[in-house]
């Protein structure tokens, strides 16, 4: 099941990280996002982070919405 909610990295120890979401903490692996830092948001799948959230791209989505006349 693909999980859509990004979770926040609160601790890193080598390849392991502790992520937090809604007051819940889970241990995951960072093998595929070695550049992740504490405070970053990642997408987690079955115990591994598979993507790092990019702030710039999030902003681009807003641009798209403006184009669609959905937001002013």
């Amino acid at each position: 099941m693909c999980l859509g909610v990004p979770v926040k990295i609160v601790e890193i120890e080598g390849q392991d990280a502790l992520v937090e979401s809604g007051g819940l903490r889970q241990k995951i692996r960072l093998d595929f996002v070695p550049e992740a830092q504490i405070g970053d948001y990642v997408i987690v799948h079955a115990g591994f982070a598979i993507a790092l959230l990019e702030k710039e791209e999030a902003l681009e989505t807003l641009e798209l919405l403006k184009d669609a006349d959905v937001i002013p």
């Binding site: 990004p6 996002v33 997408i43 993507a51 959230l53 990019e54 791209e57 999030a58 681009e60 989505t61």
Partner: peptide
Amino acid sequence: RRVVRQEGN
């Protein structure tokens, strides 16, 4: 876009 890049991971 907030997660996916053209080149992937």
